[in-house]
Every structure is written in C-alpha cells, then in structure tokens.
Design a protein around this nucleic acid. Structure first.
Lengths: 341, 341
DNA sequence: GATCGCCCCGACAACGCTGTCAAGATGACA
DNA sequence: TGTCATCTTGACAGCGTTGTCGGGGCGATC
C-alpha cells in the first residue's frame, strides 16, 4: 500500500527509506545496488521499507554522481518514415544490449532543428549521439566531442568536422539501377530525385549521370527533376517527361518517397513507363508489375552505426572511420517493360 | 577555441566559467538563465567565458534541483512498425510543442520488457509515460502514479489500474469491414487475426463474429485463425480456408501485418479471394485490386494521447478518461470481387 | 549628514545519490 | 586478557545546478 507519502509531497528518497527502516542512508544505497557487506536481516528490513514506501531510485541523481548517463540520442529526419523507423529500431536494440536508453527526435530535414535537438540531448549529457544530418556544418558539436561525447553520422557525412560516418555507396547503387534499365533496352531514362542540396540526392544523381554518359546516352533537360518529393511536383515532372516529342520510356527514382509518389501518379494518369527506385519498400513485390529497386538496408545501417558508437564509448580511439555499405539491386520486373510497351 | 579543458578531464562547469570570468558561480547561473540583475559588462564577460570554454549547462543537475525533467517516455510494441512509428511521430510533435524530450522503447509485445522499459523511464523521472501495453497488469506503476507521474495508455487499456486510455472502436470497426464483405455478397468469410490474448485482436474477432451472426451466417472452425502473424502460419491458415468442400470467398484480416502476409501468400498461391484488412497501409491503393481497409489513424491516436498526457501534467484532475476513436472504412475494391471470381 | 530603498552580487544550502574513510562490533588466536 | 583481522555500519563530502538570503554600493530623499 504505497499511498503514504512521506515528507509532504514528492517521492520517497533513500533518506526516507533509511528513516523508515532505521538505518543509515548509505546502507539503503548498498541494498539498492546489491553491494556486499549488509547483514541479511537489515537488508530485509530495508527491502521491506522500499516496498512499503514505493521507493524507486532516482537515476538522474545517480548519474549526476557517477558521470555516466547510460543514454544515447538519435536525431533523424522523421521517425514516421519507415526507412528511419527501421534504422531506429536497430539502434534501439544495440543500445539496449549495452544498457542504454534512447532519446529520439525528428529534424524534418531542418538544420536548425537538428542542432536544437542535438544540443538538447547534449545538455542531458547523453553518452553519444547518432545523427542523420540535416545541417552541413557540425562545428557546433566540437565542444561536446572534445569533452568526450561520441558521435556517429549516418546516411550523410558530418559537415566541417571529422567524425565517424556510416554511408551507403550511393553512386554505385544508382549506377546499378540505371544500368539495369539500360540493359533492358531503355535509352530515354528520366530521373526524379530529391533537392540537389541533399547529399544523398546529389550522389545518386551523379550515379544516374555516370551511367547514362558511360552508355553514350543523352540526358535531356526535362528528364531530370530534383526537388523535395510531393504529389503536384511529381505530377508535373512526369507530365514533362512523358509528353513531348521524345518521351522517356523509363524513370529512375532517387528515394522511396519519390518512387511511391511516382507510382501513384502513373496509376492515376494511366501511363506505364518502366520504374526503378532507390530504396526498397514494403509491398514493392506485390505491385503489378513488381518494382525493381536498389535496396539499402536501414536496419544494418543503424546497427553498424550504433555498434561503432558503443565501441567508441568503450574507449576505442583512432581517426574518424567511414564505413560505406553496398546496395543490392533487387530485380522484380518493373525495369524490364519493353520500350513502348 | 574550446580545446582548453579546465580542471584536467571532463566538461567545464559553471564553477569553471565563474573562475574564468572572475565572478561568482551564481552570476553565471543568472546569465545562463537570462535572469535579471546582472550588470551588462559582467554579463558580457560571462558570455565570453562560456564561449571560450565551450560550456553547456548540465540539464541533469538542473533537473535534479528543479524537480521537473521535461521528458516523457513512449513504450510501444516496435518502433520499426509503420503504424507505431507514425504514432510515435505524433507524440514527438506534441512533446516538442511542450518543450519535452522523448524517450522511446520497443517492448516486442513482451510484458516483462514493457515493465522494464517503463520502470527505467520512471527511474529517469520522466514527467509522463505513454504506453502501448503488452502487459495485462500495470499495478507496478502505482507508486509512480501516486508520486505524480502521468500515464496514458494507447491502443489497449491499462490492466488492473484506473488510467487514461486512447482506444479504437475495434468492434464497430471490424463489424463494418465484415459487413462490407457481406453486402458484397460473400457468405463464407474467413478471419485471420493476432493471438486471442491480445486485447485488440479479441475485440476485432468479436466484431467479426457479431457481424456474421447478425447476418445469419455460419462460422466454421477452419475459417478462423488467431495467432501471431508469420508467413508459415498464414500459409497454413489460407490453405485450410481455401481448400476443402466449402472454401471461403473472402478473408477479413485483423491487422496490417496479417493483411500483408495474406496478400503475399495469396499472390504466391495464385488464389484471389476478396480481402479486407483492419489498419490501412501504404500502397494499399496501388495494389491490384486496391485493398479495402478499416483504417485507424495512428497519428491521431498519438496526438490525442500526448495532448491528454500534457493536460494531466498541466494539472488537469478528475477520473481516468477513456477516449474511443472511430475507424473509417476505405473502400478500394478488394472486398467486391464476386464470389467465385 | 543620516536614512531609506534599490540594484548587484555572492555565500550557502539543498536536490538525491555514491565514493571514501574511519569507527565500532565481533571473533580468532596467542 | 590483549591484539589483530574481518565484517558491518554510518558520517561526510561532493556531483553541477538553482533558490534563498543577506551584504555592500550608490543615488535619492528628508
């Protein structure tokens, strides 16, 4: 019956437990932390008091004293996006294995919000930070990192500082997707990707260009759209690519949001160019045709990043590491529609 | 140039800043907190020192002193699941509006893990907790709630305690989905849902039964499967329903995982019964046929729960509230396949 | 010139916990 | 009986911050 609140308001503290059990504060601390050197009967009395008062140790105070907070922060673009939520889950699992709790925050791709969140986590003295950057200048983290906070960047590298990063081989990935379309016979291939200001979008566009150039294929102006994916923009982009004298026969999409919006717009418009997308997504295999994708493994990215972080926290020194993960071309059919089909 | 670490190791504290600026500790505190009563020149000197030392206030210590932690915890089943990640995002947004940070943890539907996570958050003295329950007994939270911690349960009610809850009208929702199939002419309708131990699964099955009974339709043993959705089980279930002398012509799925696995298995097996699912999912509209669903709005659930939580934190008293949100039947075609089609 | 009030400023305690250290109790042994 | 080692226990300081309070400087007022 933990309803009797000692000392007016608030929660019982070790002091309250000590008073209730008739022992010293430190003895309670020892019992709570399973330290040796407490007589069994006294320990039992303390445990009873803990139960009766509903005492729970205040980790905030403990961590202030010990210096370790046993928590890490994760700053990503949008926890509501399946790609990031899969990544987040992997980070959480690794953190849990190491006894750490996880702070999460979404930056919405806004540099200011990324910084605000990161610094808020730093003020809580997280042991480490995993960041999917929205900003291009991370010098604001230097004091924290000098003070021993670990940081690992994912999906995009840190800006203006040396730091660990877990990246995808975007150029090779995009090249493989476009090459797949080319080898299926396509010659007029459009590109729909995110704004060119975004690191991954830039590299994937580069991969698209490389692949086209290498095959001696021209890239016409209206075939390329680089903008944050939203329905109206995608619709306009597709209208431009599919209309005119030399319509594209295939579209390469730079990320899963662009892919999904493209498919939706194509279904609405009744058009059927070949489509290959960067990033896999659930149900890609059940669409008609099934969608061929250049897949990243978000869970692996999260796991690798978190493991790197905890190795740093365990004391691993050395220069900043840069891990680059491969993509996988998953051929499902949507790239192989014959031109004009 | 924040590279000079004062006092050997660790981060600079207000004490260090005070020494560096030649003022008292308390003056630094005043400057950091924008309190009035500091001469402009002294304040400027303090700010310079803060900059030079790379000082950042330790919120852990601050919160220990002030008692408020400005953080809330979210315990859900799996942050990697799009349904929960959408919910999570809504919670995060509301928390951010109230200046709170968010701890997240996945219980994997394991009661022990839910309790462990919740209590870990409590030990960090979160101001409030939003829980998607895996456990059926939440008395372990009583001491915390007595001490003033707010808690809101989502998707399923709390067990053995009175607490705020934000729920979906599962029975009515399931009834509407099954009724839709019946009105399309189906008479032999199967049910594939999660284990009967799960609150929502129980209610949705109830809705299925109600709807069938009301229409005077029989429910045969092999038509009902209640188990955690995984591919092999779903495959067996479907084989049972679709084989035999009186195969079902339609399947009602109790949650989105079951729906997706069902669709995948049906595609593999080449069968085409009508399908209606509980929970909407991305691309449901792009499948052939497009999938009719009974939609919940996870973002709304998260928002409503978080707003309720913060109202409690703002001091709103009164008995436990129980908010029940309606579902929406989104007709897309997959329910209307004529029997035998 | 004495008094008052205001504004700055800093000393100090406290938040709840853990690390350090020394004191008391107990039993073994010479 | 005295000495020593061992075990148990508690007093105390301190983690980094904020709330309280009182002191000193200064201009205004009588």
């Amino acid at each position: 019956m933990p309803s009797q609140l000692p000392r007016g308001r608030g929660r019982p503290t070790m002091k309250d437990v000590a008073a209730h059990a008739g022992v010293a504060l430190k003895t309670v601390s020892r019992v709570v932390n399973d330290e040796p050197g407490v007589a069994p009967d006294k320990a039992a009395r303390v445990r009873t008091s803990i139960e009766e008062l509903g005492f729970r140790r205040n980790d905030g105070a403990r961590l202030l004293r010990t210096g370790q907070t046993a928590s890490v922060g994760l700053v990503l673009e949008d926890i509501g996006d399946p790609f990031y939520s899969a990544l987040s889950r992997a980070v959480e699992d690794v953190a849990h294995q190491h006894g750490s709790l996880l702070f999460t925050g979404s930056s919405d791709e806004r540099p200011g919000r990324e910084q605000q969140l990161s610094l808020a986590f730093c003020a809580r003295r997280v042991d480490g930070l995993i960041i999917i950057p929205a900003a291009s200048d991370h010098r604001y983290l230097l004091p924290e990192m000098d003070a021993g906070m670990a940081a690992v960047f994912v999906d995009r590298p840190a800006g203006m500082i040396e730091a660990d990063a877990v990246l995808t081989d975007n150029i090779t990935g995009a090249r493989s997707g476009v090459a797949h379309l080319i080898s299926a016979g396509h010659r007029r291939i459009g590109y729909i990707g995110d704004a060119a200001g975004i690191y991954t979008a830039r590299l994937r566009y580069r991969g698209y260009l490389d692949s086209m150039t290498e095959a001696g294929l021209p890239v016409s102006e209206p075939w390329v759209v680089q903008a944050p994916p939203e329905p109206a923009g995608i619709a306009r982009a597709l209208a431009g690519m599919l209309g005119g004298p030399a319509p594209v026969t295939a579209v390469f999409c730079g990320n899963n949001r662009a892919t999904v919006l493209t498919l939706r717009e194509l279904a609405r418009a009744g058009a059927r160019p070949a489509v290959v997308g960067f990033d896999d997504f659930e149900l890609a295999d059940l669409l008609t045709p099934a969608i061929t994708v250049v897949a990243q493994d978000p869970a692996q990215m999260g796991r690798v990043a978190a493991e790197l972080l905890f190795r740093r926290l365990a004391g691993e020194h050395g220069p900043a590491r840069r891990v680059e993960l491969p993509t996988q071309l998953i051929v499902r059919g949507s790239g192989e529609i014959p031109p004009g089909g």
